[in-house]
Structure formats: C-alpha cells, structure tokens
Design a protein around this nucleic acid. Structure first.
Lengths: 227, 227
DNA sequence: TATTATATTTTATACTAGATATAAAAGAGT
DNA sequence: ACTCTTTTATATCTAGTATAAAATATAATA
C-alpha cells in the first residue's frame, strides 16, 4: 500500500471514457484508412449523445489519430511504418531531454520504485498474459523517470506519443526483452548515480533500438501479408 | 498572385474563432494566475452559447494555457520565464529535427519564397507597426522551412509551441534584429545548398539565441516592476 | 462559546436533445 | 458535357436538464 498514483486521474466523465474507447478502436485497426467517423453513428453505438463524441474527436485530432475538416467531420488516419518511425524518434528526442531535466527532482522513493519495477519486469515469463503486464510495467517505469521534469509541455507531448503507440503482439516484444532488460538496468544504475547525461544517452538509445526492432518486425509481417 | 496558402485553413467555425480569441486574451495577460474561467460568463461576453467555449477550452488545455479539472472547470495558467525557457528550448529541439527532414521536400518555389520573406524582413523599420509585420513574416519564414517535413506529429507540436508564445513589445524584438537577420540569411543560404545538417544547426542556434535575449529582457523588466 | 458534523442551498459543469446551417451528392435543364 | 437547382446527410450551435462540487446554514457536542 504505497502507490497512490491514480491510473489517469479519476476522470470518470463520459467524455474521457469515449475518448479512451475510440482511441483503442483506432489503434486496434478497426477503421479503414481514410474512413469517415460520423458522430451520430458512434453516438448510437456507444449509447451516448453526440457531444462527448465531438469532444473525444477533437482530442484525438491533437493526438494525430483523426483529422477534422470543418463541416466535413472526422477522418481516421491509422498508423503506418512511417508513423512508428516518427513516434519513436520523437520519443527518443523528447524523453532524453525530459529525463535529464527530471533526474535532479527524483527522490529515493522514486528510485526505489524504479528498481522494484525493473525487478518485476525481469521476473516475467514470455507468454501472452505476462507480456500485457510487461507493457504496463514498462510504461510505469518510463513514466516515473520523466515525472520530475518541471516542463509541462514536453510531458504533454510525450504522453501524446505514448497514447499513439499501437499495441504489439507478444512475439514482437519477446524478441527485444533481453536487450531491454539490460538497458533498463543501466537506466536504474545511472539514476542512482544521478548521472543525467549518461541516463539521457541510454534512454535515447533504448528507444531508438526499440524502434529498429519494431520496424524490422513490421517489415517482416508486411511481407507475409503480401504472400 | 502566387501565394494560395490559407492563413490557417478557412476554419470559419465559431469554435475556431472563440479558441483564437481566448488564446489571445490569455497570452495578453488579461487573466490572473489561477483565475477560473467560467463557461457561462464567457459565453455571454462573446455572445455565443456554452458549447464553443467548452471545445475551445479543451483545445487550450492541450496547448497548456488552461488546466481543466473534471466537474470543476478551467483554470488559467499564464506564462512565466520558465515557460519561455521551455517553449524555446523545445522549439530548438523540434524545429531543428523538422527542417532536417523537411529540406529534401522543399522545391525551388519554396526556396524563392524564403528569400522573398528574408528580403522583406530586412527592409522593415524598427517602429511598432513594422514589428507586427516582422512577427508575421518571421512566422511564415519558419513555417515554410518545416512545411516539407512528412511527420505530422512533430509539426503539430511545433504549431502548439508557436501558439503559446506571448507577443512581445517592439523594443524586445528590435534588440535582436541584426543577429536574427544574419541567421535568417544563413538559413536561406543552407537551404539553397541543400545542406540539411548546417541548416539544422543554425536553426537551433537561432532559436536558442532568441530564447537568451527574451530571458534577459524578462529579467530586466521584472526588476523594474519590483522597484 | 467554539467547533465539528450534517443538511440545505447555490453554482457551474457535464450531458441530452432538438434546431439550424452548410457542404457534398443527385437530379434537372441548357 | 456543363451549369444550376434540389435534396440529403451531417456537423455545428442553442437551449434546457441533471448532477456534482462548493458554500452556507443549521444542529449537536465538547
């Protein structure tokens, strides 16, 4: 009983739920490229009025998942390999900077939490159930690292990028686990040493390597689709 | 008659106008720190219903100008020196990357437009009226430079940062004009040469130097306020 | 009397639903 | 094939209702 962090504030508003639901559907690939998302249709589908849908769409526009044209509506713009490249390269750029600014503000409690999460991650098995858990722990790990950063905007941008990351199958993930574990270990190490520059460096490399692994996987799976 | 660029798409919706208006008011410092912005009050003030206000606030939240607490409403969070530091440092980071990715996609027409804008800027006088013109030309100049970049998200982030920049008095600006002119000249030069790395470098330095000038000015003006 | 707890009123947001305006599509006429 | 009109679909806006938080008043206890 030590973690009081709210999962995402207690945003129990309808608008928040609708945003989460639609984001999930888009990232799962439930919409075709360029498909139009009509407000009334989805209001019916989700059993709410049109306004929460409207507001959700406006937020998803900022996240880059839909494009809104005035008086024309929302057009879904799903994720391509180019998007993965963009998201991860920007994450490297921004999270590198964020952890550097964050580190001086992290206390012993935070560092302990990092280590605890690291231990949990290396203890996981590589089956489907545990990979979901891994995703969650990994997100928490990175979140704590940047949390101390006093810059509001950079944290907002990074959160947006995280929300735009499609969820990948366990097989994709398990391939990069060994490397990821070692990088995470180094990150904890440098955080303990309060070595900001080194922490920034390994964070950037960690994210860029993840990008390379994902792109390789996507390339492979696209080839299989064609055959 | 060669410039068909729409000022910001022809977003003639009420919601767009309201967002623009409220953003302007916040950046002008018309609200006190932490002041609550009630929907109904501003609906009356602007002569519209509450919904366009709601949507505007949600967008301004993403831009970091207000904070929305569920069932409590919008709280204005104005700009501090720390914010200026953050905005310009992030602009350097992101615009540097964006122009690098953009340059290969810029055609001769774009480069000519850059040069034309540069010529216009150096021809301006340093009085108030012309400084407003300078701000506009400068924004267009930077916009064209990054426009070719195929990454949606980075351009969205940069646009957000630009929207959050408070407008400064001519006296602040005129102090850095000579340096800015020289940097802009170099940027045109490197763009012509298709030298992406150099362009990135000078763009970053240009923005960071602007940051330093602004911070010095803010420091000075804050001292005057205290006396 | 002061102070805490509880009930009531007030205020503002979140939501629903209906009216309006606008843009794309279909159809009629040249 | 092209322009103009009509239709239809759908986003945008207004207005009214419900609900939650905050403020105030009332009661109870030390």
């Amino acid at each position: 009983m030590e973690n009081f962090r709210l999962s995402d504030q207690d945003r129990a508003t309808l608008q928040f739920k609708v945003t989460t639901k639609l984001r999930e559907l888009i990232l799962k690939g439930e919409f075709k490229m360029g498909e139009r998302l009509t407000q009334e249709e989805w209001a019916k589908n989700l059993g709410v009025s049109r306004m929460p849908i409207r507001e959700a769409l406006r937020q998803l526009e900022v996240e880059g998942l839909v494009r809104i044209e005035p008086r024309r509506g929302a057009i879904v713009t799903p994720i391509s390999a180019e998007d993965v490249e963009e998201i991860y390269q920007l994450r490297a750029l921004l999270e590198g900077q964020a952890v550097l600014k964050s580190l001086p503000f992290l206390d012993d409690e935070d560092i302990n939490e990092l280590e605890r999460l690291y231990e949990k991650m290396i203890a996981l098995k590589e089956d489907e159930k545990d990979m979901e858990e891994y995703m969650e722990l990994n997100a928490q790990f990175h979140h704590i690292l940047r949390e101390g950063c006093p810059w509001r905007r950079i944290k907002g941008f990074i959160d947006t990028l995280w929300k735009g990351i499609p969820s990948y199958t366990p097989s994709v993930l398990s391939h990069h686990l060994k490397e990821a574990h070692e990088e995470h270990r180094l990150m904890v190490e440098y955080a303990k040493q309060k070595n900001g520059e080194k922490l920034k460096e390994v964070t950037e490399n960690h994210i860029l390597r993840t990008r390379d692994n994902l792109l390789k996987m996507i390339e492979k799976s696209e080839k299989i689709d064609v055959e």
